[in-house]
């Protein structure tokens, strides 16, 4: 089966790999245009399926996580595959895996995502995510409160 990514690159996926693409593997479509997945992410997705080509079953990941060390939670090759990925990359992989129905990859990516925020303070999580996060209502509120406080201080000093 052939997949065309957002940036125009084509990926030929063999049947052994395609078995993980649960949403498309049983269709008769020969070519699929993936308008929301770029080639870099698609490569990672395909890589995941390839490393599991020989596997009959991929064990479910325990919930909630009991360790921050992914190597203690999943198999070595999965841990090798997913660690060191940035948040943004994880996010795209989750979306791609979700779109293609690669459920075990969704789980693995979610687990890695959770590891990155597990035990972290809200401030740390915010700073991790801040590059892509829009300003929250809370932040707007804090900003407004800050402005009000400044006004009050100004009024008090003028008194």
């Amino acid at each position: 089966m052939k997949f065309n990514t957002q940036d125009g690159q084509a990926f030929e996926i063999a049947d052994e790999t395609l078995k993980y693409f649960t949403k498309v593997c049983k269709t008769n479509v020969e070519t699929l245009n993936l308008t929301s997945i770029n080639s870099r992410i698609m490569k990672k997705v395909v890589q995941y399926c390839e490393i599991h080509q020989e596997d009959d079953i991929i064990p479910e990941i325990q919930k909630p996580l009991l360790s921050n060390n992914l190597y203690e939670i999943v198999g070595f090759k999965d841990a090798e595959y997913i660690t060191n990925l940035e948040f943004e990359e994880l996010l795209h992989i989750i979306k791609a895996a979700e779109l293609l129905g690669i459920n075990t990859l969704v789980d693995l990516s979610c687990a890695q995502f959770a590891i990155k925020i597990r035990g972290k303070s809200p401030e740390q999580i915010k700073s991790y995510l801040s590059s892509k996060m829009h300003k929250t209502d809370e932040e707007f509120q804090r900003q407004r409160d800050g402005e009000n406080m400044a006004k009050i201080q100004q009024m008090q000093s003028s008194d």
């Binding site: 909630p64 996580l65 789980d107 590891i115 597990r118 972290k120 915010k126 809370e138």
Partner: peptide, 18 residues
């Protein structure tokens, strides 16, 4: 799905994230 991997304490903490 992500939250399922977190403990209750971590989930509680999310209220300050967003």
């Amino acid at each position: 799905d992500i939250l399922q991997y977190l403990s209750i304490q971590d989930i509680l903490r999310m209220r300050r994230v967003s």
